[in-house]
Measured scan of single mutants.
Amino acid sequence: MPSETPQAEVGPTGCPHRSGPHSAKGSLEKGSPEDKEAKEPLWIRPDAPSRCTWQLGRPASESPHHHTAPAKSPKILPDILKKIGDTPMVRINKIGKKFGLKCELLAKCEFFNAGGSVKDRISLRMIEDAERDGTLKPGDTIIEPTSGNTGIGLALAAAVRGYRCIIVMPEKMSSEKVDVLRALGAEIVRTPTNARFDSPESHVGVAWRLKNEIPNSHILDQYRNASNPLAHYDTTADEILQQCDGKLDMLVASVGTGGTITGIARKLKEKCPGCRIIGVDPEGSILAEPEELNQTEQTTYEVEGIGYDFIPTVLDRTVVDKWFKSNDEEAFTFARMLIAQEGLLCGGSAGSTVAVAVKAAQELQEGQRCVVILPDSVRNYMTKFLSDRWMLQKGFLKEEDLTEKKPWWWHLRVQELGLSAPLTVLPTITCGHTIEILREKGFDQAPVVDEAGVILGMVTLGNMLSSLLAGKVQPSDQVGKVIYKQFKQIRLTDTLGRLSHILEMDHFALVV
């Protein structure tokens, strides 16, 4: 994948999101292997301009796509893939009243899908469409860049269908997702969380590099694949309309690839034109409109599966009536509230959605109805927002919020430890010299600072030695090549209790 991002070429006709291997024109390309080798690009942008032909009021008969309808489940399912879809609609009884809503608040519980998330729908649909058009064949390999849930859905379907599955996901995604993927037989590649989507090191860039190296491999490409919004247009939206008897006044959905909100909203605009569509985008993402909503100094966020630093091709923002931004604290607070007060075992993005819903639905009156999409299960986040310690460490809970008995030293300040200034190293000294210094002084790690004293990161003896043994660096290389740029900081005025929580999850903390 090139470091400079080429513009994806656009073909003359058809839909841009065809499933299957992508040609340089962004659509299915038939021909000899030699032709494909000559024409197939190194990668295709996940934010390529959409060429979708959908228009409100256009006859369904003019759609270029294969459409399906929700099917009634048999008493005995032939395999677990038949437990994807037909998820329950559940009334939220307490939270709406707590925040003064007059309307009825309903939750579409997508964590009841077989793999635990709304992404099971698009995973199965992308595979079925690729099999139907002859792209996927027995023994082929599926590769997908994902925040985890699409990966789980694909790995689940691949396990049943017999495909090899490789999932490329950023490091910030939970260990629970990784464990589930491994249990399903998927191979996992992790990428830096802070890598831009168009960087060769991003999950998108690495996935395309693997595709170019592995024979008979395919990126189904949830960011561009029409099967993504079509899955929701054909099934999720129809289920909502049936469950609500066609009567709903507002739908609120958090947005990642945009397939969920695009597919549902398009069908609702056709069948229930008075329904307002509300999009939820986390602070630090750029999906919301108008652009002024996205202006923030924050560039990272903890909530998973929603928000991006690019506009995915499948996201149709014209069908969203209003956007709201959400933050991590309210997302996790509301997710825990949904679990504790409503018994809905949902993930953090569901918290984002409901946090926005109780604001947006203030305009609705008694007798009206708001539906929220709860995308995934708490299963993926047992060591994250479900953990009091994690919430404390991230600053989303305060010590006084917890009532468990603490040891005698818990409320003492870090400054009472009488710490001395640490050994520091410059980023320009060599790895070999740094190892000598650390061994001589008896230290395992040291902060790396520039000549102005600005902290650049941390270097550890173990990481340097393993990097040297693996051949990633040489003793003569500058130590700046092996620094940890993500590390926890703590102030002298913070409590030892807070430091204790940090050290339970990290090997060190830097006192500043």
Score class of each variant (00 low, 15 high):
Arg266Leu: 02
Gln55Arg: 10
Glu144Gly: 02
Arg276Ile: 08
Pro74Ser: 11
Ser254Trp: 02
Arg132Ile: 06
Ile122Gln: 02
Leu77His: 04
Glu187Cys: 10
Ser61Leu: 09
Asp79Lys: 02
Glu9Asp: 13
Ile219Lys: 02
Lys25Ile: 15
Leu124Ile: 02
Asp120Phe: 13
Leu101Phe: 07
Thr193Ser: 02
Arg276Gln: 05
Ile80Ser: 08
Ser63Leu: 02
Ile166Ser: 07
Ala158Ile: 06
Leu77Asn: 08
Glu29Thr: 14
Arg190Lys: 12
Tyr233Asn: 06
Leu251Arg: 02
Ile142His: 02
Glu171Ala: 02
Ala69Gly: 06
Lys269Ile: 02
Thr262Gln: 02
Ala253Gln: 09
Asp179Thr: 15
Leu56Thr: 10
Glu104Trp: 06
Leu184Arg: 05
Gly100Leu: 07
Pro2Arg: 15
Ser175Phe: 08
Lys108Cys: 02
Pro64Met: 08
Ser61Ala: 11
Asn225Ser: 07
Thr191Leu: 04
Pro64Ser: 07
Gly185Cys: 02
Lys108Gly: 02
Arg164His: 14
Pro192Val: 07
Ala69Val: 15
Asp179Met: 04
Ile214Ser: 02
Ala207Lys: 07
Asp234Trp: 02
Ile76Cys: 08
Phe111Ser: 02
Glu171Phe: 02
Pro33Arg: 10
Asn93His: 07
Lys30Ile: 02
Ser61Tyr: 11
Pro170Ser: 08
Lys211Asp: 05
Ser123Leu: 02
Thr191Trp: 04
Thr135Asp: 02
Pro138Gln: 06
Ala8Pro: 02
Ser63Arg: 02
Cys272Ala: 11
Ser174Asn: 02
Thr150Tyr: 07
Pro138Lys: 10
Leu106Val: 10
Gly26Met: 15
Pro21Ser: 14
Glu37Phe: 11
Gln222Phe: 05
Thr150Gly: 06
Lys247Gln: 13
Pro229His: 02
Ser147Pro: 04
Ala226Gly: 07
Ile92Phe: 10
Thr191Pro: 04
Ile44Cys: 07
Lys267Phe: 11
Asp79Met: 15
Trp208Tyr: 06
Ser23Asn: 02
Val180Asp: 02
Ser32Asn: 02
Asn149Glu: 05
Lys36Trp: 04
Lys177Tyr: 02
Lys269Ala: 11
Pro229Ile: 11
Asp79Thr: 12
Tyr163Thr: 02
Asp129Cys: 06
His67Pro: 02
Glu239Val: 02
Thr135Ile: 02
Ala48Glu: 06
Ile80Asp: 04
Pro138Met: 07
Gly162Thr: 05
Leu241Pro: 02
Ile122Val: 02
Ala195Gln: 10
Gly57Val: 13
Pro16Trp: 02
Ile142Trp: 04
Ile95Arg: 07
Glu40Phe: 12
Trp43Lys: 02
Asn149Ser: 02
Ser32Met: 02
Ser19Tyr: 08
Gln55His: 13
Ser199Tyr: 07
Ala157Ile: 07
Ala158Val: 08
Ala69Arg: 15
Pro33Thr: 09
Arg132Val: 06
Glu4Arg: 05
Lys97Val: 07
Ala159Pro: 07
Arg190Asp: 02
Ser174Asp: 02
Ser73Asn: 14
Gly256Ser: 02
Pro12Met: 08
Glu213Ile: 08
Leu184Glu: 06
Ala24Lys: 04
His66Cys: 12
Ala186Cys: 02
Ile92Ser: 09
Pro200Asn: 08
Trp43Val: 11
Ala38Ile: 02
Arg161Asp: 02
Val180Met: 09
Gly139Gln: 09
Thr68His: 12
